[in-house]
Amino acid sequence: MTDRSNTLATIRDNALWMRRRSFEMVHRARLGHPGGDFSATDIVATLFFGVLRYDPKQPDKPDRDRFVMSKGHATGVIYTALCRAGYFPEDWLETYMGPDSRLSGHPNRLYVPGVEANTGPLGHGLPIATGIAIAGQIDGADYRTFVLTGDGELQEGSNWEAAMTAAHRRLSRLTVIVDRNRLQQGQGTEETSALDPLPEKWRAFGWDTVEVDGHDHAELARVLGAEPTDRPRCVIANTVKGKGVSFMENQANWHHGVPDDDQFAQAMEELV
């Protein structure tokens, strides 16, 4: 196999592992946000196992690439990725949202190595990532900063403050990835407060904008790994909420739905 096909196989295997383990976590805790975990899994797996430069033994290494998880509620995907990447042992996952666990329902950088910001309230990740990228720009550093936002989250105005700041400062080593699953907590984004035409909005704000299939590892790896241009990049990843489990796909109620034992068993049969 070539290096490239090896990498894609690694991403695929890890994405499958992450889906299965995160759903186990949600099933055990009786809490979580599995719909958003699954829409983001392929994006996060591609970043951690095909794009990002990091050393889990030195989580604060100054020249690491940064990954900021703005949709902090999707802890199933972030914790499984960090665990699989070697930041912490697997038994931590079994404590998910348990009493005083390190693994809260939203990530805490003071307790979980590899977490860059304590997100949860929406619209916080992109401003923070913008600050990281400014620090890198001041230093002439070569690290890159990636931030993953939900799509409904773009209704928060703070994102657009940051979009202006990042474009104004030409933060070319900053990439925002929008998990465009078209569903927010209660219903579709377009029925709630429409985001479309979303690519045009980002372009108008001065971002180098592309749309990709958010479940195609090869396409994600190519776009996320591409060399920076002269401006920040926006990758709109078209995804399916609940991706990978038939009864969860495109169902808003799986935003924070919890499986019963039969549903869990069926999901495990499908996630192979």
Binding site: L126, P127, T130, G131, A135, E161, M164, T165
Partner: peptide
């Protein structure tokens, strides 16, 4: 950052992340 307090404080946190 201009008249934009939310990104102003978020950028502060990000700058601290970057060692500033």
């Amino acid at each position: 950052v201009g008249i934009a307090e939310q990104v102003m404080v978020g950028v502060g946190a990000g700058l601290a992340n970057g060692g500033k």
